[in-house]
Computed example of a mutant assay.
Amino acid sequence: MIRTVTSTLALGLAVASPAAADLAGQPFDYEVDGTVFEGYVARNTDLPETEGTVLIVHDWDGLTAYEKQRADMLAAQGYTAVAIDVYGKTNRPTNMEENQARSGALYADRDLFRARLSGSLAAAQELDGVGNDIILMGYCFGGAATLEAARAGMDIDGFVSFHGGLGTPEGQDYSMTTAPVLLLHGTADPVSGPADLAQVVGEMLDAGVEHDAQLFGGARHSFTVWGSRDYDLAADTGSWDALMGFLDAQL
């Protein structure tokens, strides 16, 4: 189902704020094929068990305070949140040119991209508070990474892309995807526009993949990124609300 949303009730992103719960957030190191990565895990240690686990793939500028804050927000809602790293602990970009180079290297080597996603999942599964119920989500580059994992058939409970790159690389499809996919996208996105959305939805239909898409009228590319020129409060809060509904249904 595709829903077009032009306005939404504001969802307080500070609901169940970290001050109201005993939240623990900390970095952790892990290895994938000999490369060291640094992720971040957050959860409410007051809970005997969490509501499930959400993995967050970072944007093209690497794992930053943004993904960590989103992880803290999820922990405040009762989830174990793990922000993963697909670049490497000593390979963090520091400028736009390096952002493009780091993300471009993974787009050019899909086997490496998938190995780092699956290796990060395996590392997350070793952490305290992480069970078998897992959702993968990501913003922008991370949204594209989430769809890469879906096409790779990653064995988890669902995939959520926030304004991600929607194009399917040549030779790939969604025939191996076994969990639901949620697309959260702006109708004015200049990176992946309505035609790309229609294309990927058609591919999922052809593959029999359970999917949903929520559109935000007039929202541009990075509508959830605080401080971005594309930031859109209604789209940000509306997409977060959609994520909460998806997590409630799938975990």
Rank of each mutant, 00 (worst) to 15 (best):
A83T: 10
G208M: 10
G164W: 06
L23H: 03
F162S: 02
L184C: 12
G12P: 15
P180S: 04
S17H: 13
G167A: 09
I84P: 08
Q214A: 07
L147I: 05
D133Y: 00
K89M: 03
A20E: 15
N44I: 02
D33Y: 04
D157A: 11
A21N: 12
T146L: 10
G88T: 12
A42Y: 09
L23K: 03
E170K: 08
P194H: 03
L47T: 04
K89C: 02
M73K: 14
V54P: 00
D33M: 05
A20H: 08
R43T: 06
L47N: 04
A152I: 04
G245R: 11
F28Y: 14
D248Q: 15
S228W: 04
P48C: 04
G238Q: 04
N44F: 02
M96V: 15
R3P: 02
D59N: 07
G142F: 13
T146P: 11
A213E: 11
Y66V: 09
M154C: 03
E148T: 12
G131T: 07
A242E: 14
S120L: 08
R114M: 01
V86Y: 12
N44T: 01
Q199V: 02
I84Y: 08
V82P: 07
R220P: 00
G25R: 03
Q199D: 15
T187V: 11
V209F: 08
N91H: 15
A234Y: 12
Q250Y: 08
L127N: 05
